[in-house]
Every structure is written in structure tokens, then in C-alpha cells.
Design a protein around this nucleic acid. Structure first.
Lengths: 147, 147
DNA sequence: AGTGAAAGTGATATACG
DNA sequence: CGTATATCACTTTCACT
């Protein structure tokens, strides 16, 4: 399925505010709300739109630390880790990557003690490297059309 | 502002589907829709809720490669980079981190050629390390209450 | 802080260019 | 693929608790 100009305008609106009504989107781009709703539904069915989420402030939720943790899995420990990682509340994102290191995780933590106990849970799976996040410079910037 | 049990239930719904109506949330958690709307507005004002977004498939949008790029900025080049990075369409996330390396970016790219030209744009700011993302194992998992 | 009711607005289905 | 209309659902406001 192709993403035409109108759909890109809809995606721009929805990426900026997923709770925007079809009517409001329609007013901005110059079509009626049923037309917007139909286009959204088709993009959902085609999995161009993969879902809608809410950004909850980790800080306000009590997570005062953010870190990137890189894991170099021990022999035979990557597969068990890929299952286990889904169960950790601390892991917001987890990427499997090429190279000597296998995994990069974005994690949220209460404090240094929590970081320590979290890393302790990882040591059976492999060697870890921890980088504390000082600031989230670009946050989920929107996907734009290729030039 | 505190996040009580009811607000956590609302946040759970909204993190799973930001387009869920207040009425539908109310039915699930046992309060009326005006009560839900009011709680949502208060969490927005308190910046517990930082926004609502839509996941657009980078693949469907023509970005067939995802990578993590680490930057070790040259002396005096970090600040200019922190401004410049906001203008790159390829950068979905950018973190400033502790350690010898200053920056980790999650980037989406059309193909290897695009990766090459993107890295070329970075070399004036510092040394880069590129890790291709094989799979996004955990994708924006929801923020949950601390135990 | 939550309910219930009224008014306005939005969503959805259908018929039609 | 879009509009127009009608019906139903949702949101918002407000008086009340």
C-alpha cells in the first residue's frame, strides 16, 4: 500500500497528537471526517499505523534514572535472554544489534540501588555496559516521507 | 502530583491505545466519562502525560534499515551537534549519555547507501560507531507503577 | 472528586456522485 | 475515493452531592 500526500498529512497529525479527532484532522487537510476515518482504518489494516500510545513521564512515575545498557550475551544465553527481557518492567526498548554486543536496552530505574540490582539480574546472561542517559535530546521524532 | 490506582488504570489504557475514548476507559474501570476526562486533563497539566503519538511503520514508509549510531564528539563539537541533530529526519531518538561516547541515536534509513551518506554528515562532529538493528525486541513497553 | 442530565460535537453506516 | 445525511455515541459543562 502506498502512502499518498493526504495520508502523510493524516500521519503527521496523528504522530503529533494521536487523540486528534477525525473531524479535526479533516478540517486541517480539507476533507470530511468519514474520509479521514476510512483512510485511518485502511492504514491500520495495512499496518502502516502500528498503534497509538501515550508518553508517560518516567520521572513523575518515580523513575529518576534512565540508562542504556548494552549486553554481550554468553554462548547460548541470547535466546533465553530475548524471552526474559519482555518480563522486565524496567526495559522500555530493547534492540538486537549486529556486532560483538548483541543487545541494547533503554531502561528506567528508581535510583542507583535499583540500577545495581537490575544489572545483577543481567550478569547471568552476559557482560553488560551501562551508560547513564543525561538527556533525551530527540524524543520519538516523527517518521517523515522519504525525499 | 500523585498517581493513584485509578490514574494508573487510565494510563494503562492510554498507553495501550491512546485513541481510546474516555467513555470506554470509564466502562473498564468503573467511573463515568466526565471523571475520566477530568483525570486525564489533570495528568496532562501535571505533565505526567507528555503527549500522544502514533507508531508509523518505518518499513512501510520506505525506511528499510534501522541502526544505532554512537557518536564520540570532537572537542567543542557536542553543542553544535545537539542543535544539528534536531534537523535530521533520520533520527528517531537521540540520547546524551555519560562516558567516552557522548551520543547514541536511533536512526531509520532507506538503504546502505543512505546509511553511508548519513554517516558522512556526522564525521565533522566526531567519531561514529554503527550498529545495525536486527530486531526491535521490546517496543515502547509501558511505564508501570513502581513496586 | 465523582455523578447525572442537557447540549454540542464527533463517529459510523448508508446512499449517492 | 470522496460527499451528504441520518443515527448513535462521545465529550463537555454544570448543578448537585
Amino acid at each position: 500500500m502506498n502512502i499518498d500526500n493526504l495520508n502523510w498529512k493524516i500521519l503527521k497529525c496523528l504522530q503529533q497528537n494521536a487523540r486528534m479527532s477525525s473531524a479535526a484532522i479533516g478540517r486541517q487537510i480539507g476533507i470530511t471526517s468519514p474520509a479521514v476515518s476510512e483512510r485511518i482504518k485502511k492504514m491500520e489494516d495495512a499496518e502502516i499505523i502500528q498503534g497509538y500510545t501515550t508518553f508517560v513521564s518516567p520521572f513523575e512515575a518515580g523513575y529518576q534514572l534512565k540508562a542504556l545498557i548494552t549486553l554481550r550475551a554468553f554462548m547460548g544465553m541470547l535466546k533465553p535472554f530475548l524471552e526474559k527481557v519482555k518480563t522486565y518492567d524496567e526495559v522500555v526498548n530493547c534492540y538486537r544489534i549486529t556486532g560483538n554486543e548483541n543487545i541494547v536496552m533503554e531502561v528506567v530505574l528508581k535510583n542507583q540501588k535499583h540500577l545495581e540490582s537490575f544489572i545483577d539480574q543481567l550478569i547471568s546472561y552476559g557482560e553488560t555496559k551501562t551508560q547513564i542517559v543525561l538527556s533525551h535530546v530527540v524524543k520519538h521524532s516523527e517518521i517523515k516521507p522519504l525525499k
